[in-house]
Structures are given as structure tokens and as C-alpha cells.
Design a protein around this nucleic acid. Structure first.
Lengths: 121, 121, 121, 121
DNA sequence: GTGGTCTAGACCACT
DNA sequence: GTGGTCTAGACCACG
């Protein structure tokens, strides 16, 4: 795991995104135990406090939960994950369309540009 | 003009985005004179220095230029605007697809979700 | 460190020049940490904002980069420095020759005058 | 005469340089009458005040003099012009060498780079 | 009246 | 303690 963090966003938020993605995509699965904060800190080469801050955010989202003395786990409820996945993709669609409309592109135009982005397919 | 700035992003960057959008969308047109820094400051209810910082960014982008003692103007070169518009929409497409792929959606799936977002058309 | 700023040029630009020179000449070396903005401000007896403005310029030039909460550093890429050094010396040669030609001296004459400037060698 | 003024330097100073050059190079000769301020203003498409300010500077330098009700003339003393030409070229040499030394180039190196600037001759 | 620069001083997020 | 942002207010050169 390379540690390539951008300078413009707080590291802990970048960690939130990265971990959230891994959960939503299924790389971490329902009920899985997360590595300890210390292990995470070593893996990402950041301060344990930074990890802690990120995990608190994920817990607020309901994606992970804490068992005192046992560690942190991915939520057992797949529905929470699916719901978040939907919300997230909707949010992405919304922002995309808003941004495109800001520079004068309709939804249809946005879709057209998206299709043509990066080559013929 | 309401002053509705988000808390998470520097005001001057929000100004950059807002003004950039107005230029790209054509609300401000080639060669137009911008309001003076002081007028802008009154309009947006922020400090003149904050406006100044935003306008410097726009000047770096080549979207506006300064005539000493006369004011600031939208660039006369439409090509600069068009180029930036293209770059910007490409960037939006790219980020959108990357974000969607992070949560497990292919380009085709992303387009499908986008089409269905917010109703049948 | 004396504070001898000229009156005709903005202080922040004089700082840019001074720091750029120190980097190009190798007094500050690749990867070196710069003093904090506040320290700089004390050293040069100017406002921290003025330092900040100068350092932003240097960052735009690619000569320094910022690590959030850690400080600012000289770029790790010597090539950037060398490139800038070349560009800069070329720019100096060009301006010199142009200025000399404006008052009627050819390139050869300019070189001759330069050789004889300040003594026989 | 195109009016291509840079934005970073006051116009009147750019005029000073341009006119000084024309005098030093001999395009305007000893004793020549200068165009009227109004004509100058039309030629350069700038405010008469700006011309006036430039001409005052040239008069301070001793390059021109004013005959009340008759207009302004190039100084009759060629020696003044020659002296200024020398001073000016010396000043150029000095700044050039200083700037080059700031980025680590000796006088010899500076001359070498100058010779090689812009091709083999 | 225009933009440009600078100061003094404040608050914030991050580590 | 670090950089980043912002304000309030001042002064200046220019045209």
C-alpha cells in the first residue's frame, strides 16, 4: 500500500474515502474484523490519531462498529452498505450533473460527453 | 446576490468557481469589464483582499487580464475559454468515472445510473 | 540578515528573487526544509502574509512544495532547479542584448563592452 | 507606431525608455524639435499627462530642454548624450553581471553563456 | 476611482 | 507549532 496522499485534503478524510470505497466495493465484507489502529497506522504510515479520526467517521456512517476490547468490525447489515452505495452513487450523479450544468451542459449533453470520454467506447 | 458560502472550502476558491462558471457559461463575455474589486467586495460581502485573491487565480488561468488603473477584463480570446471548458468537462467526466469505479461501477453502469438519475429521462 | 529592501519593487517580489537566487545557487539544497513562515517574518522583519505571498510564488514556480502542517521544502527534483537556472540565464542574456541593441550596440559590441567592464579582465 | 505597453511597468516609464533609446541611438538628433505633447499623445494613444510625465523625466536627465512657447528640443550637447550612453551601457553590464552572479555564474561564465546565446555566433 | 501592496492580528484544521 | 484563510484598514502609483 503506497502512501500517496494529496496535500489539499486532510489525510483523515482521504482515509475515510479509501476505506469507504473498500467496504462499498466489497473488498472488506460484512462482519469482517478491521486491522487494529496500530496496524493501520503502520500500513498507511500515518499517525494513529489520524486513523482513529477516520474510523470515528466511518462509525458515524454506520459502516463499522466497535466491540470494546475486541476491535472494530464492518457492519453486519449488508442493507446499510447497499443503502450507502446507492446514496453515494446518487450523490456522484447529482454533483456531476450540477457541475456540468454550471458550465452550460444539459443532462443529455453531459451523458453524450461522458460516453465519448476516453475514446470510442 | 445572496452570500451563501460553504464552510469547508475557502471563500476565495468558491469565488473562483462561481466566476469561472459565469465566464465559461457565457454570462460574462469576452472583453467584458469586471466590476471593481471594491464593488465585488460589497456584492459578496467579503473583504476586498479575498476578491483580489480569487481574481489573481482567474488571471493565472488566463480567463481575465488586468489593465492597470482601468480595471479587470474577461480575456478577449474566446479560444482560451473554450479550451478551458473542454478541459474542465473532461476533468469532470474523469473524476466521475473514477469515483464510480471506486465503488464498483463500470463506465457502462455509471452511464446507466446517470441516465436513470432523477426520473426516466 | 539586514533588511535592505528597495522602494520601487514590492517586498514580496524582492523576497522571491532573494530566495530563488539562494535555491538556484545551491545555498538551499534539494529537499531542505525552509524556516517557518513566522520565522521568516521575524528574520526579514516583514509581515507573515508578505512571506506567504512570496512563497506561493516560489511554489508556483515549482521550486518549493508544501507539506501540510509540516512546513515548506525545497523541491526534491534537481532537474526543476537546473531547468529554471537555464531559463533564467537565457532570459538575462536576452534582455541584456535587447537593451544594448536599443541603444545601438550589436551583440559583438555588447560582449566587448562587457569584457572591458570593471577593468581589463 | 504600435502601442504595445506592458502592464507591469508604468506607461510613462516605458515611454521614457523608448524615447531615451531613440535619442541615444541617434534617431532623434542634437537640437531636433520634439513633437508637441498633443501629437505625442495621439501617436502613442495615451493621456497627454502621461507624455508630460515622461518628458519631465527626460528633462531631468538633461536629454531634452524646454523653450517656453516654442516646444521641447533634444539637448544640443552631444557630450551629454554620449555620457549617458556610456553610463547606461555600464549600468546594463553591471546589472547583468550581478544577476548572473546571483545564480552562481562568474563574469567569464556569463560572457561564455552570452556568446553562445541564440546560436553559434 | 482603479488595482496593488502591506500590516496587524485573528481564527482554524491538522498532526 | 505548522500553514491557510480572512478581516479591517491603510497607503501608494497611476491616469
Amino acid at each position: 500500500m503506497e502512501t500517496n496522499f494529496s496535500n489539499n485534503t486532510p489525510i483523515y478524510l482521504q482515509l475515510v474515502e479509501e476505506l469507504k470505497a473498500k467496504i462499498l466495493i466489497g473488498e472488506y465484507r460484512c462482519g469482517d474484523k478491521l486491522p487494529s489502529i496500530r496496524d493501520f497506522a503502520l500500513t498507511f504510515k500515518v499517525n494513529p490519531n489520524t486513523i482513529q479520526k477516520a474510523l470515528v467517521e466511518l462509525e458515524d456512517l454506520g459502516l463499522i462498529y466497535t466491540e470494546r476490547t475486541n476491535g472494530k468490525f464492518i457492519t453486519k447489515e449488508q442493507v446499510v452498505i447497499d443503502k450507502l452505495k446507492n446514496e453515494y452513487s446518487n450523490k456522484l450523479c447529482e454533483s456531476f450533473l450540477i457541475e456540468m450544468s454550471k458550465i452550460g451542459f444539459s443532462k443529455d449533453m453531459a451523458i453524450y460527453l461522458l460516453k465519448n470520454y476516453g475514446g470510442k467506447n
